[in-house]
Amino acid sequence: MYRIGELADLCEVKADTLRFYEKHGLLAPSSRTDSGYRVYTDADAARLRFILRAKAVGFTLSEISELLSIDLDKSNWACADVKGMVDLKLAQVQAKIAELLHFQTSLQSLSNACCGGPRSAEHCSILEALESSTERVRFEHDHGPGSHSEHAHIAATADKSGD
């Protein structure tokens, strides 16, 4: 039997984390002492480790709740059901990575288009690109007096993502 602080120490989390999981229905103390302290069993510790491992690979609290339900009733679920959840989460992660790579490429283009000099931002290529209703940045080298070494001009490809 563990008190909340003991279980938290055992699993290397804060007691507040256990309270949070309790509040969201993922974990509940097996009982309480006469003085109201939460008391957890080895089964509760195993459940907490399950929650922490699922969280560590990216599952949301809702998804973890569903996984816990399946874990408690394994005989009525197929392995394909669990694999489907993992494959869906994997697809979501891959989509997020693709989105982040797009952000990286776009930000790099904006950065590359700007001279980053000390002059006024009146003709800043980054601001000009962000003020435009299009997405792609095209570079135009302009070495005239008082100009940035590179100006970004926006190509005529509108952003259709709606974001």
Score class of each variant (00 low, 15 high):
S111F: 15
S132Q: 00
E150R: 08
S75A: 15
G25S: 00
S132D: 14
L130S: 02
L7Y: 03
L48D: 13
V57M: 10
S62I: 08
R119V: 06
F20E: 06
D42V: 02
V39W: 04
G58P: 12
E12N: 13
A8R: 03
L72A: 15
S30M: 00
A155L: 14
K89V: 10
G146L: 03
H153M: 14
N76L: 11
P145R: 00
F50T: 03
R38F: 10
G144A: 15
Y40D: 01
L130T: 13
P118A: 12
H148T: 07
D71L: 09
F59E: 04
I154C: 14
A155G: 14
V39F: 07
A78M: 12
D81A: 11
A113E: 01
F139V: 13
A80R: 15
G117I: 07
I154K: 03
E150T: 15
T60I: 08
D73R: 11
T17L: 00
I4A: 09
L72M: 14
L100T: 14
A80G: 07
A15Y: 05
V82F: 09
I126P: 04
T17I: 04
E135F: 12
Q94P: 08
P118W: 13
M85K: 11
D73W: 05
V13Y: 02
F50W: 01
N76W: 07
H141C: 10
L27K: 02
R32M: 08
Q104P: 01
C114N: 01
D159W: 02
S106P: 07
S30I: 00
G25H: 00
S161H: 11
K14Y: 00
L107H: 02
K96V: 09
G36R: 00
L26W: 09
I97D: 08
Q108S: 11
V86Q: 01
S149K: 05
L100V: 09
H143R: 08
S35C: 00
C115A: 15
R138D: 12
E66I: 14
S149H: 06
G162W: 08
C114V: 03
L10Q: 03
A156T: 11
A28L: 04
H24M: 02
A78I: 06
S65M: 06
M1I: 13
